[in-house]
């Protein structure tokens, strides 16, 4: 059976097409659905193995990035999402999707899904929207679907104004000690460096997962680099030796194929 991925669209979503493309290239069947069709129950989350919330400015990011979408998830789609998670299925949030998952209390969700918000994504240290390519290292964590990629350094852009990950020290310690931090901003050689942190995130955190490792979110955009010709310096590279982010989507789809489909 083919892996089925649902990509969510809400007013203001704007990275949906390239996210569809990334999952399709990774071998999944993909449906792109408006949130209203989930709320009205004409689309059933149960029919899918992967649920992805792509980037954009959901509902204009009025009230803060991803806040209204977080409320929609929490108050309109709570039951289907809880069922989806409990079956071990995968949720991926990219950029605005990550912001919504954090604000809905799904990430990191140390006290259970939808319990309370434990971290946030604040305005960038620079105070402005930033479009910049960054190196992102995948860590060895409780996120099993991505463990095959541990230590891989990916190259992808960040495009956000509110991407600075912050959490209280008690939470941050748990995230560090118990393997919740899936992605970190690093320098080209894989070392953690302040200079290569685009937004001032604590501990260079670019993305995290939940306790069961089946919900994962990140600020940078892997779907923007699934073939080499979107690399900002591809005209200078040896054309064959370019690691792109398609592997990330493949890892999720392969895991879903082995464990869920």
């Amino acid at each position: 059976m083919k892996v089925r991925t649902l990509i969510l669209r809400v007013p203001g979503t704007n990275c949906d097409q390239e996210t569809v493309e990334a999952f399709e290239e990774a071998g999944s069947h993909v449906d792109l659905k408006h949130i209203n069709s989930l709320i009205r129950d004409s689309t059933r989350l149960d029919d899918y193995h992967i649920f992805c919330i792509p980037g954009g400015f959901s509902y204009g990011d009025d009230l803060g990035a991803g806040k209204i979408l977080a409320c929609q998830l929490k108050y309109r789609l709570r039951r289907p999402i809880e069922r989806f998670i409990s079956e071990g299925k995968i949720i991926l949030g990219i950029c605005n999707g990550f912001q919504a998952l954090v604000k809905a209390g799904l990430l990191p969700g140390l006290n259970g899904a939808f319990n309370r918000q434990e971290a946030t994504l604040a305005l960038n240290e620079g105070g402005l929207f930033v479009d910049r390519w960054v190196y992102v290292r995948c860590e060895e964590t409780r996120c099993k679907p991505l463990n095959s990629l541990a230590k891989t350094i990916f190259y992808m852009p960040v495009n956000h104004a509110e991407g600075r990950f912050i959490a209280p020290p008690s939470i941050l310690d748990v995230l560090e000690d118990d393997g919740y931090i899936v992605f970190r901003y690093v320098d080209p050689y894989g070392s953690i460096s302040r200079e290569w942190n685009p937004n001032g995130s604590m501990n260079n955190i670019a993305g995290i997962c939940n306790m069961d490792g089946n919900i994962v979110g990140l600020m940078p955009h892997p779907e923007k680099h699934i073939h080499q010709y979107t690399h900002p310096s591809w005209t200078r590279l040896d054309r064959m030796s370019n690691v792109n982010c398609l592997r990330l989507f493949k890892a999720l789809v392969d895991y879903a194929y082995t464990h869920l489909a």
């Binding site: 402005l128 930033v130 479009d131 852009p157 923007k224 900002p232 310096s233 591809w234 200078r236």
Partner: peptide, 23 residues
């Protein structure tokens, strides 16, 4: 200015407004 504008969204940009070894 350029970095405040999103030039990656839609992932279609093959030659970007800023190029070269340091982008």
């Amino acid at each position: 200015v350029i970095r405040q504008y999103d030039h990656e969204v839609q992932a279609r940009m093959v030659v970007k407004p800023m190029v070269g070894i340091h982008g």
